[in-house]
């Protein structure tokens, strides 16, 4: 099998204590501190002010990192296919829907209903950027980031085009928080490009391949990453630590209970 060979054109990262990739990168490397007090939630300039206020946390998070990653890549957002990945979607919207359905189903808000679809962030992104390229919204529970990265690499190589990957999960709230575990806000985005066409040397590049067999998630190195381990998108953290350290060793991420995604620099 030919491994998928792709490069990372740009990186974006957002968590309340690590609101930006340069801050996160320094904190992962032990060269900088998380911000104190932490930010509350991002305010993506790409949304109109009223939309920015009304947007669910998941949409605000996703659009913030998507916009930064695309800007840093120097590419045209309208041309990029996008892959949005979230383990659980917007848990506050789900809590609202289930609470309202239990109490007064006829009063369900139409806006909250259409915001409850898993591809809500993808929808707002393509509308905000007038992007008519393909967009998708995926989940794979606690291996969602690995599954999203595989889909992004696959789209990138199969169609020889740059793609946008956006990963995010939000805080679990309400009764649902008893069974669905996710703490705080965490989002990250990458623009991937085929290795054969990347313009700038020095960008991190990986061969992705599938290796049969189970593996545990790689241990986190930094206290800054460990502080985010309760978020449902935590399976992204080993990858972003590896980016921060510019590691030259293969990184193995669990893709399913029985399959490993191997990323070889």
């Amino acid at each position: 099998m030919n491994p998928l060979h792709f490069c990372i054109d740009s990186v974006a990262f957002w968590a309340p204590a690590l609101p930006g990739w340069q801050i996160a990168r320094a904190a992962f490397r032990g060269e900088g501190a998380p911000v104190d007090p932490p930010a509350t939630r991002p305010a993506p300039a790409i949304l109109a002010p009223a939309e920015r206020r009304r947007a669910p946390d998941s949409v605000a998070l996703a659009l913030e990192v998507a916009a930064v990653a695309v800007r840093e890549s120097g590419r045209d957002a309208a041309m990029l296919p996008s892959i949005f990945i979230s383990a659980h979607g917007d848990l506050a919207v789900n809590d609202y829907m289930c609470t309202t359905l239990a109490d007064q189903p006829a009063l369900v808000s139409p806006t909250r209903f259409h915001n409850s679809v898993h591809n809500a962030a993808a929808g707002y992104w393509t509308i905000a950027t007038v992007c008519r390229a393909a967009s998708t919204a995926l989940t794979a529970f606690d291996t969602s980031f690995a599954a999203g990265l595989l889909e992004a690499a696959t789209q990138c190589i199969a169609d020889q085009q740059a793609v946008l990957l956006v990963a995010y999960d939000v805080q679990a709230v309400g009764a649902l928080a008893m069974v669905t575990k996710s703490e705080g806000l965490l989002a990250a985005a990458l623009v991937l490009a085929p290795a054969s066409s990347t313009g700038s040397p020095g960008k991190p590049c990986f061969h992705a391949s599938l290796v049969a067999g189970a593996i545990d998630s790689p241990p986190l190195r930094s206290s800054a990453a460990k502080a985010l381990a309760g978020n449902a998108m935590a399976d992204a953290l080993p990858f972003f630590e590896a980016l921060a350290f510019a590691t030259d060793r293969p990184l193995d991420l669990p893709l399913t209970r029985t399959l490993t995604l191997r990323l070889t620099p």
Binding site: G89, V117, H118, N119, A122, S135, T136, A137, L138, T139, A140, A147, L150, E151, L210, A212, L255, T256, T258, L259
Partner: peptide, 11 residues
Amino acid sequence: LEGPCVTVSTA
């Protein structure tokens, strides 16, 4: 199954 497993959820 033991291969890749992913959910597409685009309404």
